[in-house]
Design a protein around this nucleic acid. Structure first.
Lengths: 356, 356
DNA sequence: CCTCTTCATGACAACGTTGTCGAAGACGAC
DNA sequence: GTCGTCTTCGACAACGTTGTCATGAAGAGG
């Protein structure tokens, strides 16, 4: 990978970034057009009560000076004005789940003329707290949070102050707020039941840190099914604390090389399923060991075998979150809602492999 | 997909979002702690010259009142202060390319204590202009732009006013600004040369709208190779205007059913490659027709055959963009730079299929 | 012609904060 | 006790904007 990095030679006549030539303010526009500040304000805000002539003079000055409205000053003065900005703190914006969620949230926000401040938490509680503080200091109109902290008491003051907040993917703890989550226990149950139905009795589960709510819920669903099915729990088949595809792959490698390997794997999150599939492929077991993943992702249908997953309707989650958030921003003060979305099984092949 | 949406019953004691109980200001803190406004300001900003006793009184009042600093008011007063916010306008935040780019940019920004406003343009020029206006009105410290417009003269005033701006993936037109792009012509040449080297002479190309710079550049690279190789151009093998995987898949279907189908396909963008693969799979041609894609993406290695691609190092692009942007924000006024990153061929199988 | 209303416009304060500068008190040196 | 120096603190203006209200001119109605 080489890289060219040369100063540009041609294009001398083109506009270039230069150092701050202090931006024009309404005062400048007023001076240039020979009217009062307030009149400029009226023109800029399209308020009525300005004669056509004056309006035009002001507009000319606006373009002459490249005047740009300063929304921060404007908001400061306007009592209870919105900043037209919301914050979205997700786990990892580059993960297809967070990315799609952000995207559908963005679409709702744009319809409301609102910009989105987005950041990744990477399961770091301290970062969450610091970022929330930053968003509040920026006076966002609302907050979407996929928390990395186990409890969110630190948010209590903001909630009391009326900051519209919607939790997504994970429920709030220690505070009461709106949430849009998936029924993880149910989803995991469906997934594992599906495997049991194929005749599997040695089903491994790949799970993330036990501090992550969704991970433990999915693990719970797994255990419930085994118990109901009368399959004795085998702790060697439960691998937790997996943070990434590589760790999942390594776990699968160990499992498959053990004395009594699993005939099926339930992967608790999309990237863990990917790591598992990659290793099974490498071991030549892709068509021998069944896999069901949690979270659908692009191309899952193109794998061989195509991956069976529990799908969360991400677009639905995102727009649900957006709707909820903006109804709060608009002033809805009804009690907090918990929207729970049921994931659906998408059978594509990998989950329908029978035990050998 | 069902959905539960019930008001919450329990948890009555927990803090809940309520309507605006007007946020405490420094004035309130000053009143409560019996000092002047300015002293509160000093404490909040950790300025020296406040006695320990007073400092503590103020801090108690700050927590008592849940005071939160208002960065907008602060920035308004501070001359030339930064807002600690940058804007990133990419094509589609849910696409793995934009998402990864955003993520690595975010990491740079966080290190600089800066938040990122992110939005998707979806190739809509009007949206780009409106969003830039919005970002400028929010006084972002810098702008990252993957333009949807063909020319960006509308930015001239902002650039003159000193708005740090870095173009990514696409070069600026009509204005001069920093950019970080991939050498698309070169990348396309490598890709198509690779196919020619395998013996292919009927190579189709899937391309996006001709208004998209990167698309035409890749198309150009394709044509150059054919010419050099002495392969007569066949316009039926050039399909442009493909906006999504479905369109690409449809195009591939038509191509493969024609009288003289291609033996290889060069897909000009990751989603077009995906559409092509999906159709080839459906037609049972996945192992007969060679494919090389542009842009790597997660799981390309897990397809069967694994997809050969021209990889752009997205993380590198993102951090390069970030570094450039923040050097400008820090005051670097050297002439605009054009960083050009060379994509590399990642041979995985699909591109090494020989013609039949 | 006078009063009353309507309309366009401007003066001024205020939003929440910080930079500037000056005042009051403590302290030390003589 | 006097002077100077430090330290701590506050009054005030300013950032760029908008809400409120006042002003003056033009037009309506008698």
């Amino acid at each position: 990978m080489s890289e060219t990095d040369r100063p540009l030679s041609g294009d001398q006549g083109l506009p270039t970034a230069t150092r701050p030539v202090a931006r024009a303010t309404m005062k400048d526009v007023a001076a240039l057009s020979g009217v009062s500040l307030k009149t400029v304000s009226r023109v800029v805000n399209r308020e009525p009560g300005v004669s056509a002539g004056v309006r035009e003079r002001v507009e000319r000055a606006v373009t002459r000076l490249d005047y740009s409205h300063n929304v921060h000053a404007s908001n400061l003065r306007r009592s209870g004005g919105r900043t037209g900005t919301i914050g979205a703190l997700l786990q990892d914006i580059s993960n297809s789940f967070s990315a799609s969620l952000l995207r559908s949230l963005e679409d709702v926000a744009r319809a409301e003329d609102t910009a989105v401040l987005a950041a990744s938490l990477d399961e770091e509680p301290d970062r969450e707290i610091a970022l929330v503080r930053g968003l509040v200091a920026r006076r966002v109109d609302g907050l979407v949070l996929m928390p990395a902290t186990s409890r969110q008491e630190y948010l209590a003051a903001e909630l009391r102050a009326g900051l519209p907040t919607v939790f997504v993917d994970r429920l709030p703890h220690g505070v009461d707020a709106d949430s849009v989550t998936v029924d993880n226990v149910l989803g995991a149950r469906h997934a594992v039941e599906h495997l049991v139905r194929q005749g599997h009795r040695r089903i491994a589960v790949l799970s993330d840190l036990s501090t992550i709510q969704t991970a433990t819920e999915r693990l719970r669903g797994y255990r419930e099914v085994l118990q109901v099915a009368g399959i004795p729990a085998d702790s060697t088949l439960e691998v937790a604390g997996l943070r990434n595809p590589e760790a999942a792959g390594e776990a699968v490698r160990r499992l498959c090389r053990s004395a009594s390997p699993p005939t099926a794997i339930f992967a608790g999150r999309n990237d863990l399923a990917i790591g598992a599939v990659r290793t099974l492929r490498a071991l030549g077991l892709a068509h021998r060991v069944a896999v069901v993943g949690f979270d659908d992702f692009p191309l899952a249908d193109l794998l061989d075998p195509a991956l069976t997953v529990m799908r969360q309707n991400v677009a639905q989650i995102g727009s649900e979150v957006g709707r909820l958030l903006f109804s709060r921003i608009a002033g809805d003060t009804s009690p907090p809602r918990r929207v729970i979305i049921e994931p659906t099984l998408v059978a594509r092949g990998s989950g329908e492999i029978r035990p050998t």
